[in-house]
Amino acid sequence: MTMKKIQDKYITYGMVVIAYVLCEILMRTGIMSSHIKGLLVPMCYYAIVAVGLNLCVGILGELSLGHAGFMCVGAYTSALFSFAMEDVIPTVPRFIMALIIGVAFSTLFGFLIGIPVLRLKGDYLAIVTLAFGEIIKNIFNAVYLGIDDAGLHISLKDMSSMGMDPSGKILINGAQGITGTPSDANFTIAAFLLLASLFVVQNLINSRDGRAIMAIRDNRIAAESNGINITKYKMFAFTISAAIAGTAGVLFSHNISTLTATSQYFGYNASILILVYVVLGGIGNIRGSVIAAVILYLLPELLRGLSDYRMLIYSIVLIVMMLFNWAPKAREFREKHFAFLNKRKEAR
């Protein structure tokens, strides 16, 4: 590993830490409006899931449109745990356990879905991951789960077919989701988890496994002839990517009081939105994903006052970002004037 790569890694961490400190100061001094305060945690989880998706799209080179589904798995499993254990376990250990459970289940789903899906390539893989994402969302939309003295009751039909005692507690109420999850997440936790996922992904890229994954991306046949187990590393990268999306899901569900599997948050639209962050931030550019997620998440929210012109400005920003990132002239300009930031590295 060269000095340059090491430096690069710390620039990303530094950026997140500085942004965090700035936001904290603004919050503490009361300058920040409550509207913006409410955007901080979502900003972080979208940045996290963008980093996770970039591992899949930019580093492994496989286009996935199902990451909102993995987010959904992490959100539901962890929220279910927190909701069920709300009165039993104190906040801090409960959130840690919920995080572990959410990540574990999204890892498991990533692994299981990866087995059939990674046999496909390119567009086909994108279509199938999209389908799996929708399936996950729709299943969570249909599940009824409750607990009473007789134990757990589950149904995919309606509430009455669960056959539950009226005194029992409803955990998942079909399309109305989980109501009353404890809001354990805050901006500090979110920023920490963002740093943690950056740590995992950036360190992974600079390791033996990361090189193998990028080798598969660049040339599968050559990687095979170099003795690299293609299936193993594809599964590995995809699973880690799903786990990181699950982390974002845990933050999501612990930041709101009612969790529903709506297509706004967990449908293919959300997956595409995350992909937009990745593409505009630069495919394979981890720091770019964070920056793009933050800007593109905050922008439409901050422009709410402009009502009709909101989406117009948003789309212009999308185009400008695309040009700034990829147009040859813009890259030249950047290399000249932003050499100290040097976003596109020599070797990545």
Binding site: N203, S207, R211, M214, A215, D218, N226, A347
Partner: peptide, 29 residues
């Protein structure tokens, strides 16, 4: 068939993949 987006030395390091080992966890941490 080179790994076109990797540096020259990383290309060689991929070739060394099975000559040197450490665990995935060690790589991440």
């Amino acid at each position: 068939r080179l790994y076109s987006k990797l540096s020259v030395i990383d290309n060689v390091k991929v070739g060394l993949h099975n000559q040197f080992h450490y665990s995935t966890l060690a790589g991440i941490l």
